[in-house]
Design a binder for these strands. Sequence first.
DNA 1: AAACTGACTAATA
DNA 2: CTATTAGCCAGTT
Length: 108
Amino acid sequence: MGDGLYERIYEVTKRIPRGQVATYGQIAQLVGMPKAARQVGYAMAALGRGAPRPDVPWHRVVNAKGESSIGGEQIECLKAEGVAFDANGRIDLRRFGWQEIEEGGLFG
DNA sequence: AAACTGACTAATA
DNA sequence: CTATTAGCCAGTT
């Protein structure tokens, strides 16, 4: 523990602000492994499976299409935080996608 | 030790 | 829109 890739993923996931979502690939980039989007998903799968990680908001992680890969509780949790889904069950990442850098304010 | 299984993404055809 | 391919890691059997 602590020196695994999964732990790194959990640390980044914990930084996602409430009411926003991040993609697997985005987190993969933040941990320094832009091609490890899969591992991010697998790391999330490892949660809610007897691994107590109540401090990791795994529900704020969705796929690149802006939709929940598992649905169910995932979607319910996001709706409860104010994240809106369209008729296709997709999230508008322009609005709810997590951006480390703020809008820039230049035009934002 | 080897094989299997998972909540992904981007590019190409 | 679908199918295929390459790139990643950890836990279970």
